[in-house]
Write a protein that binds this DNA or RNA. Structure first.
Ligand SMILES: [Mn+2]
Ligand SMILES: [Mn+2]
Ligand SMILES: [Mn+2]
Ligand SMILES: [Mn+2]
Lengths: 219, 219
DNA sequence: ATTTTGTCTTTGACGACTCAAAGAGTTTAT
DNA sequence: ATAAACTCTTTGAGTCGTCAAAGACAAAAT
């Protein structure tokens, strides 16, 4: 059984290996996990010895099928727990990511089955992130259009928030841009870097990089 | 923040310091925690240095007020989680102790508040163990009568099961002796060491040491 | 072609937790 | 009173996860 440290490493690698080859640099991991590069090299060697990943020195790291399977299981736990905390325990949307960060390592598969059943096998978590199913080794990653890239004036629906940081989620909540909300881009001004949107409850304005973190779908 | 290892040590000490002075021997802890005596001595020294307990070498260990408060908080978490797993997630009575053993270290106070509220601030867990409240530093310990010590022929109610081991819980469940059940001791034979009880659903027979693990109340 | 810069790895060290085995103290039996 | 038995502590060592600092490599600049 991997420790929770190893599980966090696996998750960080999975979520960053979006490109075709699936290689992640040790530097990116150091950044993501908040440890020094030397620590990453050490851990990565021990994880490679355990068969969880392959390490090309000075190149990067790639999950083995076993490592990938375990990483997906952890992501599944994380997202089901988040959904449970919001829907059953009525917790605040902005808090659940942090809580799930710990619970994902403590919840057994038995408990997870119960949670999944009570929730009715949801497909996405409260941030719109897809919940990997037990059988499909998929992890959809921000391929859709965003408020920064969509056509203006169309009726849209918020699909997914691509930034879990508390201040950003706070803003999303305040302005009513949570997943499921209907929204329309009134204008997008490249020069000033500003996007203006209409919502049911009034309007809201945000910067282009922020708009790019809100995935939408034509509806 | 104590690690989960330290939390388990605190809990083990609390639950074994039932006597007036509240002293627990390092040997008893080694036994309870499944580590060697030398490990206990080492850990106990570091916990004493952190102010969680006092250590009289070759005598034993006693929690400080701070250590005691933290231990009670962990026990509270454990028992509320057990209750939640049974009542909300409908998990099997015999499994929840094991699950709670991990979750008690991963659940935040915020989540605990929600759980406590949803359950309606219960006073006892599924085994009948009292749930310490946030304010009362109490931990009632098997002071009542048991099936081995009560008067025969009286109408009783099962209050508490004093053994969390899976096989024993399995037997309790099978024979219908779970907390809340009505029961009457038909006969107790010191010579053969056997207790015979009548329940709503038939009768059951058990040994004296086992009967002593079932706390009851006249009803 | 060198040098510089940026990234990655190695090395030595540490804290937390654990064990096995040897040592010290205490209690009980002879 | 001495020995035996029991319990507890010490010592030396190992694993895991981490850091700081020094070293190696590769890409980019000159
Ligand atoms: Mn985590
Ligand atoms: Mn999420
Ligand atoms: Mn525990
Ligand atoms: Mn219990």
């Amino acid at each position: 059984m991997p420790t929770s440290t190893v599980e966090n490493y696996l998750k960080a690698i999975l979520v960053r290996s979006s490109d075709e080859v699936g290689v992640v640099s040790t530097g990116a991991l150091a950044e993501a996990l908040g440890v020094t590069p030397g620590t990453i090299t050490t851990m990565v060697k021990s994880m490679a010895a355990r068969g969880l990943l392959e390490h090309q020195p000075r190149e990067g790291v790639r999950l083995t099928p076993e490592g990938r399977a375990h990483a997906l299981a952890v992501v599944r736990k994380h997202r089901l727990v988040e959904t449970f905390l919001v829907q059953v325990l009525q917790m605040d949307w902005k808090e659940v990511h942090q809580e799930a960060e710990a619970l994902e390592h403590a919840i057994s598969d038995r408990v997870l089955l119960k949670i999944d059943a009570i929730l009715g096998h949801p497909a996405a978590d409260p941030h719109g992130d897809p919940i990997p199913s037990r059988k499909s080794p998929v992890l959809g990653r921000g391929k859709g259009v965003t408020l920064a890239s969509c056509e203006p004036q169309k009726q849209l629906r918020v699909e997914r928030i691509l930034d879990q940081s508390a201040p950003f989620l706070e803003f999303i909540q305040k302005s009513g841009l949570m997943p499921g909300a209907r929204v329309r881009v009134r204008e997008r001004d490249r020069a000033s870097g500003v996007v203006r949107c209409d919502l049911k409850e009034g309007e809201t304005t945000l910067g282009l990089p922020e708009a790019a973190k809100i995935e939408v779908k034509v509806s």
